[in-house]
Simulated assay, not measured.
Amino acid sequence: MIIDAHVHFWNFHPVKDSWITPDMEVIRKDFLPADLESCFLDHQVEGCIAVQADQSEVETIFLLTEAESHSIIKGVVGWIDFLNPDLEERLKHFSQFEKLKGFRHIAQAEKKGFLLQDQFIKGLKLLHKYNFTYDILLKADQMVDAIKLVEKLPEQAFVLDHCCKPDIKNKNTTLWNEQLKILAQNPQVYCKVSGLLTEADWNHWNEQEIFNCLDVVFEHFSIDRLLFASDWPVMLLAGNYTKWLQLLKVYTKQFTETERNKFFSGNTKAFYKI
C-alpha cells in the first residue's frame, strides 16, 4: 500500500500561477485528479494528500471540492491567512471538513523571519486546538527559521516539505545537512521525502547524488518520521512518477517490510490522521 503525501492540482492561469515560468512548459497546463488516477492504478498508489499551491481560501475550497468527488484524495492541506485577526473563526469554519488535515503558507517566497512574526506564531498556536497540522515550506538557507519556530510550538504537529530543498545542483549541501540534523531533533517534526529531483540539475541528475541526500534525511529523521511524497506534477520538470517511485523503492530495500510500510503509507496515515 502506498499513499503519496504531497501532490498538487490546479487549473493553470498565467497570472495566478506566475511561479510556473515559461521554462517550466511541461507543467504550464491543468493538472486534476483524473490526470493522476491511471498513474496511481499502475503503481498501486491508494491515494494522496492534496497540497495548496495558491495563497487563498479559494484554493482550499477548490481542493476540498475535488476531494469530495475523487476518492484518491485522502486529505487536503489548504491555505489560510494566519495574520487575519478573525483567524479562529475561519478555523472553526474549516474544521467541519473531514478531509481538511492542515494548512501551509509558501514561506520560501517570503523574507527570512516571516514565520517568526508574533502574529503568525499566535495564529499557528490555534492549529493544535482544532487538530490541524502545519506544512513547513522553506529553502535550505531559511531553515534556521524552522528550527526556531518548532521550539516555540512544542505541541504542534509539523512536517517539512521536500526535505527543505537542499542545493543539489550546486553541490552546496553542508549547511543544509547540519541544520537538518538540529531540526530533526524535535520529535514533533516529520519530513516529506520529495522534491529532490527538482533541486538537482533537471536534465543531468544522477542516482548517487539523490541517494547521498537520502542518506542524510534518513539518518537524521529515521524512517519513523519520513513520508513518501512525489510533489507531482512539479516533479515532471526533472523526471516522472515511475522513476521517483522506483528510486525510493531501491533505496528502501535496506529496511524491513514493516519499516517500508511505515514510509510508504503508515507515517502519512498517522501524521494526517487518515
Rank of each mutant, 00 (worst) to 15 (best):
A229L: 05
V189M: 12
N177H: 15
E199L: 13
R225M: 14
L237F: 06
N172C: 05
Q185T: 07
L236S: 08
L175I: 04
P187N: 15
L214A: 01
K192E: 10
L245M: 06
V189H: 14
P233A: 10
A238W: 08
M235A: 03
L175C: 09
T173G: 10
H204R: 13
T173K: 11
N186K: 09
L183D: 04
S230N: 01
A184N: 03
T173C: 15
K243I: 13
L175F: 08
N203A: 07
N206W: 02
A184D: 03
E209R: 13
L183M: 09
D224Y: 09
I210S: 02
Y190M: 11
K243S: 09
D215L: 10
F221M: 11
K169R: 02
F211M: 12
S230C: 02
N172L: 09
Q185C: 07
Q188C: 15
F218Q: 01
G195D: 00
R225L: 15
E207M: 13
V193D: 01
S222D: 10
E219L: 03
M235L: 07
L245P: 09
A229V: 07
Q185M: 12
I168F: 01
D201S: 02
A200M: 01
D231G: 10
I168M: 04
R225V: 11
E219T: 02
N206I: 07
R225I: 10
P233L: 06
Q185N: 14
N203T: 12
V234C: 00
K192G: 14
Y190I: 04
K243W: 13
Y190Q: 11
V193K: 05
T174V: 13
Q188A: 15
E219P: 09
L245I: 08
A238S: 06
D224V: 05
D215F: 03
C213D: 07
N177F: 11
G195Q: 00
L237V: 07
S222R: 09
K243M: 11
Q188W: 15
N186M: 14
T198Q: 05
H204A: 01
K181G: 04
E209W: 11
N206H: 13
V193G: 04
Q246R: 04
E178V: 12
T173M: 14
Q179G: 03
N203D: 12
N203W: 05
L180N: 07
K243V: 11
T173Y: 12
F218T: 01
V216N: 15
E209D: 15
T242Y: 08
I182L: 10
N203H: 15
S230R: 00
Q208T: 14
V234R: 02
K243N: 06
T198L: 08
R225T: 05
E178I: 06
E219K: 03
L237A: 06
F228Q: 05
V216E: 08
I223R: 05
E219H: 03
L245S: 04
E219W: 02
L248Q: 03
W202R: 06
W202M: 00
Q246M: 12
D231Q: 04
Y190C: 05
L180V: 10
N170V: 01
I210R: 09
L183G: 03
